[in-house]
Design a binder for these strands. Structure first.
Lengths: 340, 340
DNA sequence: GCTTGGCACTCTGTCCGTGCGAGTGCCAGA
DNA sequence: TCTGGCACTCGCACGGACAGAGTGCCAAGC
């Protein structure tokens, strides 16, 4: 079946040429640029079969062929080798990320780096709160009747809430409360901490019980329904590059989806830290992303993903390169967050 | 000088028509749509003068006239009345912003709201750290040799840094340190707090002196060189609306500038809370913004601006409407931040 | 049976010439 | 000072011609 093999080789060549030139690719050009060992006429026959099978299509008669979503899918699954990053790129990642001072800084730098490496739109999700643990709970008295609760997670995220209290509170009570909360919750996963809140009210020393009761609702809310997960987006300027060619109508729906965040966050919720997920065109099951591909992976040192990151671009993208870049950045971010 | 007056009336009509229709406007259309009381021929004479003075220009012979930057400037300064927001809009602002739980939430909502009201790109600056005061300084022991410093400002911003310590530290010392820092810095402006750091090292109790010395460098850095000011951007999808018409080449440089942030932050540094600043086209003195206008104002309750917010769009924008929207949102954000 | 060269066919993108309409500038008259 | 009229200038849309790219098919060769 040298037959089938060559046909796949033709598909690979089509994808590679189309990705790099952005022109529908014809049989003659293929024969010239690749050593397929056969004439254009033979390639034409193969192309006819590939088209019938749905891997490629022609925009119009007398134009070259263009891969379909299905064609890219086959390419990604079977035809593309992992493209390792160059030493220089690897070093650039380290240099770029090493100066980060806190979580926000790490994520901002990552998103820029990723956008630069791939020349696509990059997205990085904040570490999911539901998978994080409490590092510290801080209580600050803002005024006589207002208390601020600050949650710091093991990944460095900070969430804050202000609680109105009907009773006056003194500094000593605040200190006690702080101790109470931290001995109860430090190191505990957020979900589990949430479950423990009712217990806390019951077991608190009598003189603190009122205070604990007052803050418990807000505390619970902070722990179990923490502000929606956030997303850092970068490199949107890359959308304005070949837009007319890459995105049929306009980039507007895509920009809207990126700002809406919720769509992308749903995608990011599906990643795990070991395998890179590639969603091509219609596979995205969301209209705004139908013309786009998403390459994403989870980051996190221990195997469980703390969050996801990835790139969004036209289906006509350099999959091997983007997969490699996304994986490399994710790995490095994972290391960084494990350290801090 | 009824002369000059009518001529200005003509300019105003041109700006209004051009903003709403996006077509170069001719003398005939002008005479029809506005009650200027004179014939198209007269208007043509006025237009010739306006063109000579540099207020309007024609894209090519036999096209209508289009306002120049100078024309918009005159319109903004002299010809446009403040357009008060409708009650419904005012109520929408309140409804939209009232549910915010923390600073990030306030700013994110504001930027969305502003983008929606103006149909332009909206930007909101985080409260400038240099103008904020310390609300609370928190010290958390992360491990035996690592301490995390957390700065909470009176505007609700949170900055965090990890300090490596060579000496082991116990919980009691941390608590003492926390007390020391807060009694020294609570309520003090960041800049001034930074100046007090050396004193602190000298006056600290002997048993804490080593610890204080260890953290003082990081503390100083956190107080006086706090992470660059941040910007929240929203509504970039609005750039993809009439782009071909509004922005000559492409929106790419503009998107890049918005992501770079530094250019926009510099603009925001110039605002104050009382007057709305309008920069039109070339006035922006930055290439990427040369084809755009920026409407910005500071927010903050007390008169001193905590930060800036505004919109960026094509020079062909609804100035009165955008000015009103920007001012209204800034006022409301100021109230919200003063409360919390 | 697979491959190849040749050939006719189809379609797009481009160039050019034409006609139309919008809008102007100028001038003479009110 | 305003107004109506008129000639003039362009840009743009339309349509036909043309070149070029690429295909599909067929008959011949290995």
């Amino acid at each position: 079946m040298a037959h089938d093999e060559r046909r796949l080789e033709v598909l690979r060549a089509i994808v590679q040429d189309y990705v790099s030139t952005n022109d529908p690719v014809g049989s003659k050009a293929l024969a010239e640029r690749h050593d397929l060992g056969v004439s254009p006429a033979t390639i034409r026959n193969d192309m006819a079969v590939l088209e019938e099978q749905g891997y490629i299509t022609q925009p119009h008669t007398s134009a070259g062929r263009v891969p379909t979503d299905k064609g890219y899918r086959l390419f990604v699954d079977k035809l593309s080798a992992v493209k390792p990053l160059s030493v220089a790129e690897r070093r650039a990642i380290e240099r770029f990320l090493d100066g980060a001072v806190d979580l926000h800084d790490v994520l901002t730098r990552s998103v820029r780096l990723l956008a630069q490496l791939t020349r696509q739109v990059a997205v990085v999700q904040y570490p999911t709160l539901s998978r994080s643990a409490v590092r510290h709970l801080e209580v600050v008295q803002v005024s006589a009747t207002r208390i601020m609760l600050i949650l710091i997670t093991d990944t460095g995220r900070v969430e804050q809430r202000v609680v109105e209290s009907t009773v006056d509170t003194d500094a000593e009570a605040v200190a006690e409360l702080r101790g109470l909360l931290n001995s109860a919750f430090s190191g505990v996963r957020l979900v589990e901490a949430g479950e423990k809140v009712p217990d806390l009210v019951d077991t608190a020393p009598v003189h603190l019980r009122g205070l604990v009761a007052t803050i418990s609702a807000t505390l619970l809310e902070t722990l179990v329904e923490p502000g929606e997960d956030r997303l850092v987006v970068g490199g949107t300027a890359n959308l304005a590059r070949g837009s007319a060619l890459d995105f049929p109508g306009t980039v507007r729906p895509l920009l809207e989806a990126l700002e809406e965040q919720v769509v992308v966050l749903r995608l990011m919720g599906q990643v795990d830290a070991s395998t890179v997920l590639v969603r091509i065109g219609e596979e995205n099951a969301h209209e705004a992303l139908a013309g786009a591909s998403v390459v994403s992976v989870g980051y996190g040192s221990t195997g469980r993903a703390l969050g996801g990151l990835g790139v969004v671009g036209p289906t006509r993208m350099d999959y091997p390169g983007n997969i490699a870049a996304v994986r490399a950045v994710a790995r490095y971010v994972g290391h960084l967050l494990a350290e801090s």
